[in-house]
Simulated scan of single mutants.
Amino acid sequence: MSNLTTQAGANVTKNRNLYVGGSDIPTILGINKYKTQFELAQEKVGIKPNEFKGNEYTEFGNIMEPQIRDYINAVNSIHEVHFKEKTMVDEERNIRSNVDGFDAEYGLLLEIKTHGKNLDTKPYIAQMQLYMWHLGIEEGWLALYERPDNFDTEFDPNRLQIEVIERDDEFIQKILNAIETFWIRCEFLKDNPNAAEQEFIDFGQNEVMIFAREVSKLEMQLAEFKEIEKQYKEAKQQLHDAMEAYDIKKYETDVVTVTRVLPGERKSFDSKRFKQDYPDLAEEYQKMSKTKGSVRIKVKEDK
């Protein structure tokens, strides 16, 4: 067994409080049994220091990671797969991704994990989804190396298995939303460093409640406006009919000038008929565009 130390690399720890990293994702999603989102936020905002400096498990992983990567590169050399470490930073979302391996030519991610007997891959897959989003790729390899009881660091290929993980855009959006909410809560914690954990968790919900009340108020005003608009259109039509009956072209008041517009014709494209007559051609000219997320509001009717 090698002499294991517990010093994390500088690329992992530098400015850690400024970013969310892949290892933070399980905590933010609530699937990390060792740390809560509240505890992570306290570390990010500087209320409590991150006292974890590593242990024999993490150091074993640090020692084995390059060996595992080199082995995978070697056995896949016939396909010219060559994984290299890579770091990406999204300053807008405050996300930093340190990946164990990336092959740019094949657009392939490699995530290496050493584990014990009780294996749970959910946290690893969550990390990989963030990395695939950050890299803009569709697939990754999850390399799982079972740790021997004596922590022997001599590489044994029989302990290695690889799972192919595909990109899940729905899951990725959930992760990005959770990160955004986490940073909002961190801002709340900065302003309220003595806040309890439940206050921290409820903050996002309270913010939703505030906006929901505002939207409800505006929605009711909008409903009133629609009724006014209906009355306006009816009055406008009555005005037109009266001006037409008495052949009045223009009428002025102190505040408005009303001009009667004579009926006429205009051309328009009948897209419905075009689709019916030329379905294949219409399909060829269809354009796909992205839409922003939104909320749908429905006013409840009085019972």
Rank of each mutant, 00 (worst) to 15 (best):
K14L: 10
Q286R: 13
F211A: 05
F225C: 05
Y57I: 10
R273S: 14
L262M: 12
T36Q: 06
Y251C: 06
K33S: 14
L262F: 14
E244Y: 14
R16H: 06
E43W: 09
Y19V: 02
Y57Q: 10
W183E: 02
Q7H: 13
K48A: 03
E180Y: 06
P279S: 10
E252D: 06
G9K: 12
R266N: 04
V12G: 00
Y71G: 08
M288Y: 05
D254R: 06
K117G: 04
F203Y: 15
G264S: 15
I28Q: 02
W133G: 06
E111G: 06
V255N: 14
T6D: 03
F211H: 12
E59R: 11
D90N: 00
A282N: 00
E91S: 01
L135P: 06
I25R: 02
A212Q: 07
R213D: 09
N194I: 10
V215S: 07
D247K: 07
S289N: 01
K84E: 04
K117Y: 13
I165F: 08
K117N: 03
M243Q: 05
E207I: 03
T27M: 04
D90Y: 01
C186G: 05
I137C: 02
A242E: 09
L110Y: 10
C186T: 12
T181A: 15
G30A: 01
F274G: 04
Q276W: 11
E219Y: 14
E170F: 15
E214N: 06
H79A: 15
I25H: 06
D202W: 03
Y145C: 10
G136M: 04
F155S: 03
N15H: 07
A178N: 12
D202Y: 11
T13A: 09
I63P: 01
F269W: 13
T257S: 07
T153C: 13
M209K: 11
A245H: 03
A282G: 00
E146C: 04
T259A: 09
T87I: 15
F38Q: 04
I112E: 05
L142K: 12
Y124P: 00
V20I: 09
P157S: 11
I68N: 04
N62Y: 15
V299Y: 09
G107R: 03
T27D: 01
W183F: 14
G107C: 01
G107V: 06
D149G: 14
E224Y: 13
Y34E: 13
S23Q: 02
I31S: 05
K249S: 05
R167H: 10
